[in-house]
């Protein structure tokens, strides 16, 4: 359990910050950290600690899936691309045809969080399809 020692501070931070369903497993030289963070701030804190212990994550020996727990289902999200429009696609994948666009900083309705990576969204114009979750930030209703 060498990796657990290396990332002890990360594990401790997760435990102390109220991450629920926390599971830490080491398998074939990779430490898998799963759980649900009570807030986005806690998730950011964990990634900062991870970055400190392994600068730029370059060892590549951690797979961390600590998502912000959705006690209240996400219904609205803001398009947080750098500046461009966000593609809305027919299916969950960049190989799927683009069926619409959501503007930078537009608020869209989240119909369902299909996967961790792709969310089904609907714009106010009625365009509906899948967008990449990285560019969608949940907003308070």
């Amino acid at each position: 359990m060498v990796l657990k020692d290396k990332y002890q501070e990360l594990v401790t931070t997760a435990t102390d910050s109220g991450v629920t369903n926390l599971q830490i497993r080491e398998q074939e030289g990779v430490l898998y950290i799963d759980g649900e963070a009570p807030s986005g701030a806690v998730k950011d804190k964990l990634w900062n600690v991870y970055d400190k212990l392994d600068p730029n994550f370059l060892s590549g020996d951690v797979v961390m899936n600590v998502n912000v727990s959705s006690s209240a289902p996400v219904t609205k999200a803001k398009v947080t691309t750098e500046r461009s429009n966000l593609n809305i696609r027919k299916g969950p994948g960049t190989d799927q045809p683009v069926v619409g666009k959501a503007a930078h900083h537009e608020i869209v309705t989240v119909v369902s969080q299909t996967s961790d990576m792709w969310w089904l969204v609907r714009t106010d114009d009625g365009e509906e399809g899948y967008s990449y979750a990285q560019y969608l930030t949940p907003v308070e209703n």
Binding site: G29, G60, N65
Partner: peptide, 8 residues
């Protein structure tokens, strides 16, 4: 990390 690969 969401892809849950065998590391990097």
């Amino acid at each position: 990390d969401k892809l849950k690969s065998k590391g990097y």
